[in-house]
């Protein structure tokens, strides 16, 4: 299959469908944003206390 054929096979069948997909994606996007604020609040409660200190001191030896 050539690259063009492949693109065609994966392309949307009509512009109407594409528009519908965009609306769905947008709605999903909004839902994700709402949920992400909840999760950020939750994560804040477990994050290591001093970010700067933690990151500065985090040094690993190489491995493998």
């Amino acid at each position: 299959m050539t690259e063009r054929e492949r693109k065609e096979s994966h392309s949307r069948e009509s512009e109407a469908e594409e528009a519908a997909d965009e609306i769905v994606a947008e709605e999903q996007g909004e839902a994700l944003t709402e949920r992400i604020d909840d999760i950020l609040d939750e994560i804040d409660t477990v994050l290591e206390e001093n970010a700067e200190e933690f990151v500065k001191n985090y040094v690993q030896k190489g491995g493998e």
């Binding site: 985090y58 040094v59 690993q60 190489g62 493998e64």
Partner: peptide, 8 residues
């Protein structure tokens, strides 16, 4: 570690 050290 974000400082140039990698392990596998």
């Amino acid at each position: 570690d974000g400082k140039g050290n990698s392990y596998g």
